[in-house]
Design a protein around this nucleic acid. Structure first.
Lengths: 221, 221
DNA sequence: TTATTGTTTGACTAGTTTGTCAAACACTCT
DNA sequence: AGAGTGTTTGACAAACTAGTCAAACAATAA
């Protein structure tokens, strides 16, 4: 790869940056569609509108291209979350989290599917990144755990394992995108107007998770 | 493939059936591990302990082998569900559904991941099979929808879109298996004793979904 | 202008992988 | 035993694909 100096960007440097970006974005799309093994470098090159050997010039090998795209993608995805507001009812925090998560996955559907594929292939990298995020003071992920614990302490919600809860919420937000064709076939609204369906889903998730299904409150351990 | 007659099975017919079965099971494992594109026919042959051309003798092409395994796998998975009991509280029905679903996915983890991969590749076949199941009088899937509707009518639970609810439950049950490496890294118990973790998860899911997080009941539309 | 540096191109290679085929084999039935 | 059927084997071919390379090209700096 070119060693770009700190000085004024020249037109060739501009071209190079453009090329690299185009490769990057094309690779993102193709890998997301076809998976690492199904993707062909020729298809990526075509989609980036460059000659195939340039892929090797910028990213040595297919695997290195894949890894580079994956790492940036995962980072961007994790960084796309805001920390929940400190004060206020947990109900609002939860609602905001659900809404934000669904919007995020809708916008970064490729990234979400990529991460799932990586997990199914046994890769630990998402786990490592998430573990780092949870260990980082002030990260949105950590803040969410704290918010759950505060809400339990304040008595707003029942005692609950925050990690189980987060997994539940994330599952319910991400899974529909991962199984999109099935969801669209099973739900007329999802097929007609997916955005409207997602709004319905946001409401549903909040109602079920915060208030539960049962009509009368039951004391439970 | 051999046309097996209706008469007494001969030893060669037995051998052939064995071979076919071994191929089938090897293909299941390899495809589940590597995906359709990542899987090599040689690896399947090795794992089945046969010569590679036999794969073509029994299943014309790689794609046909893949399709054959996928179809049987999906069918078995859908058939592995029992219809919920007719009477009794919905709470019990829901609890049984969650427990059964988690156990089912644990046992057929390969199938679940395969179905997710197929969806991510855009395939409609899971949707088609599920749509058929939902349309079939007396199927477990249909029975679950009915149970939800009865529970709403009887006032045991708040009004809820049964399909949204089922998607939520299924998401929360399947997703942890799909993201297993991450789950194990984020939750010590999952890494140490996954079965115990799943028991914890069953409880958590029922509590959250049936009773909700909130400590006091709030009237809502 | 000319040298230098980084980028792009087309041609080529080496390895892999699916799929075919004819011959060898095993088993059953007459 | 011998014919007939279905199964297994080893060798082969055809296609594809990642990766290499040297030469052509473009832009800048001296």
């Amino acid at each position: 790869m070119a060693d770009r100096t700190a000085g004024r960007t020249t037109s060739s440097e501009q071209d190079a940056a453009d090329t690299e970006t185009r490769i990057f974005e094309a690779a993102l799309r193709v890998f997301a569609r076809k998976g690492r093994d199904g993707a062909r470098l020729q298809e990526i090159a075509d989609e980036a509108d460059i000659h195939r050997p340039l892929l090797h010039y910028y990213f040595r090998t297919k695997q290195q291209l894949y890894d580079a795209v994956a790492e940036r993608l995962f980072n961007e995805f994790l960084l796309s979350f805001d920390a929940p507001a400190e004060g206020g009812r947990f109900a609002d925090t939860l609602k905001a989290f659900i809404n934000h998560y669904i919007d995020s996955v809708r916008q970064h559907r490729h990234a979400a599917m990529w991460m799932v594929a990586e997990n199914m292939a046994g890769s630990p990298i998402l786990g490592e990144m998430l573990a780092r995020a949870f260990a980082t003071e002030g990260s949105p992920q950590r803040a969410m755990v704290d918010a759950v614990e505060r809400a339990v302490a304040s008595g707003e919600i029942h005692p609950v394992n925050p990690r189980q809860l987060m997994l539940t919420v994330v599952s319910a937000c991400v899974f529909p995108f991962v199984t999109l064709p099935t969801v669209k076939m099973m739900n007329p609204l999802a097929a007609e107007d997916f955005d409207a369906y997602l709004e319905e889903r946001k409401e549903h998730l909040f109602e079920v998770i915060y208030h539960g299904l049962a009509t009368r409150e039951v004391t439970h351990a």
